[in-house]
Nucleic acid binder design. Structure first.
Lengths: 299, 299
DNA sequence: GGCATACATCAAGAATGTCTATTATTGACC
DNA sequence: GGTCAATAATAGACATTCTTGATGTATGCC
């Protein structure tokens, strides 16, 4: 295997037409350059230099190799620059998977902020519920996953991922605007006899658990992971539901009433692959996300 | 400066998606591969790999660099092949400078022989008298110089050149076919009172010296380094001359008579740059030359 | 929870690289 | 023709780096 140092030495000798001058240029000693040339000749199996009086000059083979070496060294340089630019946030891409309500609220703000700061980095966005997002993260299809967990359950499964909490948002009970309920609207038990509209599977599981804790089993009439549809169903008087703050920030149906549930919350986090440190673009994006989250302006 | 070995390791790891598998493929130990990866990351200043469960995978920067590395390694391979082919007589060029009578006789035969054996090597031919040919050799404009020397004088000046004798050819006195001379035709003294036609400068110097040795100073009426012209002048009765065997092999005017001068001869040699060993194409060409010289068929 | 797998880390010996000092050649100048 | 200056090659010492076996750590599977 050839050695880039030796190729660089050869190029320098070819340019300077002198071992001593090449050595000075490369900040080597003259014998080092001689030695490298000798090794290079042994490596390629052909004489590359000839003594010329008290100087030196290249053989035809030497000239050929020097020309190629120049190209190769240029390519190495370019590759190094490319990687450095990538690592230095001046190039690259970032693939984000986020759950719907975040994708509609936090993510656009974060992406706008991030793109302004690092315009050379391409961003790909994917809508995915947390389990799917985490799988994508593990498969290398995604660089950053925005995930959530209800209540105090763990956000991620922690296998090869680093979970960074970024926000805890309130939960609301969503009811038809004109409907009256006996009892406190901040307690789930008030809605024990209503029909329920559930969200995604994990949301439904959490809803059921929360209702059980409040002393009843919810009568789930509809399921949909579309928070816009949930509100439309509620507005149509087909049932009641719970929604997290972000879903309501993203979309607020005029004919529903919301009341905060002080005993419940949803925790939002970003997951990245592997133990820290994450790649620079990922770190920068997380920073942008946190900055975008400082003003969610809960309804 | 990046290291080709490390780039090769990176490529292997990228392909195998495993340090251990890459190590086996490269006939390294697993720790060596780990070490190389670590050094490479330090060199480029960016993380290139991530642990993935009990395996490993590349970061975006790693994938970028691996892709570039593959190209670079291919180019290195190509450069090596190119040089090897050149050294191995399957490519390259050979620039020959030869004096006129050789260029008209020996060189075509040698070139034909050489080209048949090594068709991929380009040959450039230049007509040059020995001093010019040697200068070209020293300046790197010529790879092989065919030179000659009269009598026993040295063929080359031996500065940075290797002189390989290849042939000693007879000298002839050239006279008008119908002219009678008192005395032996194999002695220069017989032509002491004739007018003389001299060749190139060195030939003229040698002619004068030879004549002086024979007891007279030649009356030089014409000078030309064209041996065809020399014979034409002699045939026209304008004088007499001496010519070496090769000139007469190349061209024989019907109206001149030639007689061998047993006391004189011309030595032909090839000069190559530097001390041995010469590049392979040069060595092969010299071999072809010697083979072409075995049958000059002196007149 | 134990086992097998895979990568990282450590330490020691081997290989390689670099330097200083020296030698060998060559060209130039007197 | 002899001496001097310049240039590259060689030799030996020292430092660095590479390679490897042994060990440690984390992960996935049963």
């Amino acid at each position: 295997m050839l050695d880039l140092v030796r190729l660089r030495v050869l190029v320098a000798v070819a340019r300077e037409r002198s071992v001593t001058a090449a050595a000075e240029k490369l900040h080597y000693s003259q014998p080092s350059v001689s030695h490298h040339l000798a090794r290079l000749e042994a490596d390629v199996g052909a004489p590359l230099t000839q003594r010329a009086g008290r100087g030196i000059r290249l053989t035809e083979a030497g000239r050929i190799l020097a020309a190629r070496a120049e190209e190769i060294l240029g390519q190495v340089e370019a590759a190094q620059t490319e990687v450095a630019e990538h690592a230095g946030l001046r190039a690259g891409r970032l693939r984000l998977a986020a759950f719907p309500s975040a994708l509609a609220t936090l993510v656009p703000r974060a992406v706008a902020r991030f793109s302004a700061a690092h315009p050379a980095i391409d961003i790909a966005l994917n809508e995915a519920e947390p389990p799917v997002a985490l799988t994508g993260l593990r498969n290398g299809e995604v660089d950053v996953a925005m995930i959530f967990a209800h209540g105090d359950s763990p956000a991620g499964d922690d296998r090869n991922t680093t979970i960074t909490p970024v926000l805890t948002e309130p939960m609301y009970v969503v009811t038809p605007a004109n409907r009256q309920w006996p009892g406190e609207r901040t307690k789930l038990a008030t809605f024990a006899h209503a029909r329920w509209i559930a969200g995604c599977e994990r949301c439904r599981l959490h809803l059921v658990a929360a209702c059980e804790a409040a002393g009843f089993t919810p009568d789930i009439a509809f399921e949909t992971d579309d928070y816009v549809a949930v509100q439309a169903l509620v507005a149509a008087g087909l049932g009641v539901s719970t929604l997290p703050g972000l879903a309501l920030v993203a979309n607020r149906h005029p004919d529903v009433r919301i009341d905060r549930l002080p005993d419940d919350h949803r925790r939002i986090a970003v997951a990245t692959y592997g133990r820290s440190p994450a790649p620079l673009p990922v770190q920068a994006f997380i920073t942008a996300l946190r900055e975008a989250m400082v003003t969610p302006a809960w309804p």
